[in-house]
């Protein structure tokens, strides 16, 4: 199925308006690959027919449902367990030990995975907490995992992963300890699944968060947005973060020239975390993007 230039333009506008995801020209092949199945499932002979229908009905439930399916199909949901390794070792060796100390009285931690996809990222955090901070079992710890895409959230909630996903970034020690075999698939154990709550959340809309966040992981999602949207979202991130909270972005993402109040902190080893300006950093650390 090959999308017409007119439908392509319409899909780009719709996806951008609803999710901020920018589809550059030249990405027609992506629209073909991703919307072909959507059109077919909804009973249309072509992507153009689907798009024409969505435009014609304009509003109402059917329009809403189809428009959302289009947006969801255009998201890139690639992820893996302990992706990039470093953010998780920084969490383990630096951020969490500091927070555990700083929150010793309140005994509460708020962690937000703001583009959680199929759950590998929040479950990696949950396994890490279980493995290295058993004392937190008696704390009020919330790992709030959100995404715009309802299909990935459903998969994440099930905690079921295919072999191809299990192969990606999950240390065998964690596999043995925290997963059960389910037919050909693997399911993460209930005690880990229980630590994470999944909810639909569009970063362009309201953020129904519980209090200030101690750790925000907003990784590999801003890359799809334009600069004004990145600025706007990072500004809002700063507002929902605790004063001494930290932010992790994807390996190619930064706050530099986007949100001056969030400052990159280069650590002894590889990897970067971001803190609110003026928040307690450690001496000898230099600023970086």
């Amino acid at each position: 199925m090959s999308v017409s230039p007119e439908s392509f333009a319409h899909v780009c506008a719709l996806v951008r308006r609803r999710s901020a995801i920018v589809l550059e020209s030249g990405k027609e092949y992506l629209v073909d690959a991703r919307l072909g199945p959507v059109a077919k499932d909804a009973g249309f002979a072509s992507i153009d027919d689907l798009v024409a229908h969505v435009r014609r009905i304009e509003a109402g439930r059917e329009h809403e449902e189809l428009a959302r399916s289009i947006v969801e199909a255009m998201t890139t949901t690639e992820t893996s367990f302990f992706r990039d390794v470093h953010p998780f070792s920084i969490l383990e060796t630096k951020v969490l030990p500091e927070l555990v100390q700083a929150r010793a009285r309140r005994r509460a931690l708020r962690i937000w995975c703001a583009a959680a996809s199929t759950g590998q990222e929040p479950f990696s955090v949950a396994m890490l907490l279980c493995e290295h901070f058993p004392q937190l079992a008696s704390w009020d710890v919330r790992i709030f995992a959100t995404d715009i895409n309802r299909a990935v959230l459903d998969r994440a909630r099930s905690g079921v992963f295919r072999q191809l996903e299990i192969n990606r970034g999950l240390p065998v020690r964690m596999l043995v300890k925290y997963f059960d075999r389910r037919g050909l698939d693997w399911q993460i154990k209930p005690e880990i699944r229980r630590m994470v709550s999944f909810q639909e959340l569009n970063l362009l809309e309201r953020w129904p968060l519980f209090g200030r966040q101690d750790v925000v992981l907003m990784r590999n999602v801003l890359i799809y947005f334009d600069v004004p949207t990145k600025k706007q979202i990072l500004g809002r991130v700063r507002e929902v973060m605790a004063e001494d909270g930290v932010l992790f972005l994807g390996g190619t993402e930064t706050t530099m020239n986007l949100e001056d109040s969030l400052v990159g902190e280069r650590l002894a080893g590889p990897g970067v975390l971001f803190r609110a300006k003026g928040a307690a950093g450690r001496p000898g650390e230099t600023k970086t993007g």
Binding site: S80, Q163, L164, I166, N167, R168, G169, P171, V172, L175
Partner: peptide
């Protein structure tokens, strides 16, 4: 470590 066949290049690197 333990890698299950089939796998892709990314899995090996990770």
């Amino acid at each position: 470590e333990y890698l299950m066949k089939p796998f892709n290049a990314a899995a090996v690197v990770e």
